[in-house]
Amino acid sequence: MITFTVNGTQRSVTSDPDTPLLYVLRDELALNGAKFGCGLGQCGACTVLVDGEALFSCITPVMLLEGRSIRTVEGLGTVDEPGPLQAAFIAEQAAQCGYCIAGMMMRAQELLERIPDPDDDDILAALEPQLCRCGTHMRVIRAVKRAAQALAQAQALAQASEGAR
């Protein structure tokens, strides 16, 4: 039994410790966000955050994750209340088939937590491990920028209201 938190909720899983996180998320915890793309850490469709850092869940055995904090695209918001990054991807219509997008978003989330105001080069570099086959790259880049702006505005508002108090 391995225990970790997933999107803020503590979960204990019974899968064998050598099972890659991807299959535990999908098959044991019924989360769809992380996708099987290659099983080799080459494409990024399975990307999730562990303790805030993006990794390939398809090659990460859960034995490494005892006590750690995992975040998937489900942890960024919901259909009814999308988070800033999700709202940005919807606003930019940044998907075609969308199979790569959840992993793409987790990589972008890591970037925005590290560099709140990324420039084009930051975004290209950060997303390099992620493959998209439909050619939605231009929209993904725009969506990450839009999310960064939204987060900055939200922070400015929060600071303003903090200051007013």
């Binding site: 989360l31 769809n32 966000g33 996708k35 998937t72 695209v73 489900e74 960024l76 918001g77 919901t78 259909v79 999308p82 999700q86 991807f89 919807i90 219509q93 998907a95 969308g98 199979y99 997008i101 959840a102 978003m105």
Partner: peptide
Amino acid sequence: RVDIPAKVTGGAAY
């Protein structure tokens, strides 16, 4: 697109 919200929130899309 009607399918994008589920795809960016981990809905059952595929």
